[in-house]
Deep mutational scan, measured.
Amino acid sequence: TEYKLVVVGAGGVGKSALTIQLIQNHFVDEYDPTIEDSYRKQVVIDGETCLLDILDTAGQEEYSAMRDQYMRTGEGFLCVFAINNTKSFEDIHQYREQIKRVKDSDDVPMVLVGNKCDLAARTVESRQAQDLARSYGIPYIETSAKTRQGVEDAFYTLVREIRQH
């Protein structure tokens, strides 16, 4: 089974770092803004072998026109913010609204991801993020692309959301 996953969120929150940590098991430290990259990885989730087709997208506003296209083809979405960047957390709402509009559905598989949880300088409390996820009816997972904490959990949870859909 193949799953088309799309990673969305503001610029600099760590979308590529999360994806590369999942696929290649290493942490990319330097920031190089993405336009669009796709990665494929075969994994076993709950005993089922599946192929993850992951689209890593641009957070930069100037590429926002490309969003409709990949939102149409994606089956599930990782909505990523950084726990030390309140603005990126506030941006999640717009991504969710755009996904709902493009998919013409209120019920699209999504996982809210709070990345950079290895950093002490948190400005978005776990509780705020949990409340937001609960209001959307989606899971919330904290990750660190640096330490790998929660990385597999985030992507695998999204696959489970798609399966249950």
Rank of each mutant, 00 (worst) to 15 (best):
1 T>A: 10
3 Y>R: 15
4 K>Q: 11
8 V>C: 07
12 G>P: 13
13 V>D: 04
13 V>H: 09
15 K>E: 01
17 A>K: 03
18 L>I: 09
19 T>M: 04
20 I>C: 05
21 Q>E: 07
21 Q>N: 13
21 Q>L: 05
21 Q>S: 14
22 L>Y: 07
25 N>T: 12
25 N>A: 12
26 H>F: 15
26 H>I: 13
27 F>A: 02
27 F>D: 00
28 V>P: 06
29 D>N: 12
29 D>A: 06
30 E>C: 06
32 D>H: 02
33 P>G: 02
33 P>A: 05
35 I>G: 00
36 E>L: 03
37 D>S: 00
38 S>W: 02
38 S>R: 01
39 Y>D: 00
41 K>V: 14
42 Q>C: 08
45 I>M: 07
46 D>V: 06
47 G>W: 04
48 E>S: 13
48 E>H: 08
49 T>K: 09
50 C>Y: 12
53 D>A: 03
54 I>K: 00
56 D>Q: 01
57 T>N: 03
57 T>M: 08
57 T>D: 01
59 G>K: 04
59 G>M: 03
61 E>G: 14
62 E>W: 15
65 A>W: 11
65 A>H: 09
67 R>E: 13
69 Q>W: 10
70 Y>S: 09
71 M>D: 13
72 R>I: 08
72 R>T: 09
75 E>L: 07
77 F>T: 02
77 F>E: 02
83 I>K: 12
84 N>I: 05
85 N>L: 12
86 T>A: 12
86 T>K: 14
87 K>F: 09
89 F>H: 06
89 F>T: 04
91 D>S: 14
92 I>V: 10
94 Q>E: 13
95 Y>L: 14
95 Y>A: 15
96 R>H: 08
97 E>M: 13
98 Q>V: 14
99 I>A: 04
100 K>Q: 12
100 K>E: 05
103 K>D: 03
106 D>F: 13
107 D>S: 12
111 V>T: 03
112 L>M: 07
113 V>P: 01
113 V>Y: 02
115 N>D: 04
117 C>Q: 07
117 C>V: 09
118 D>N: 04
119 L>V: 14
122 R>V: 11
126 S>V: 09
129 A>E: 04
130 Q>M: 09
131 D>R: 08
131 D>E: 09
133 A>T: 04
135 S>L: 09
135 S>I: 06
135 S>E: 11
135 S>C: 07
136 Y>D: 06
136 Y>M: 09
137 G>C: 04
137 G>Q: 05
138 I>R: 03
140 Y>T: 01
143 T>D: 01
145 A>H: 00
147 T>P: 04
148 R>W: 15
149 Q>L: 08
150 G>Q: 13
152 E>M: 14
152 E>A: 09
153 D>I: 06
153 D>V: 06
155 F>M: 11
155 F>V: 13
157 T>C: 08
159 V>D: 01
159 V>C: 05
159 V>Y: 06
162 I>P: 02
162 I>R: 05
163 R>I: 11
165 H>N: 11
165 H>Y: 09
165 H>P: 12
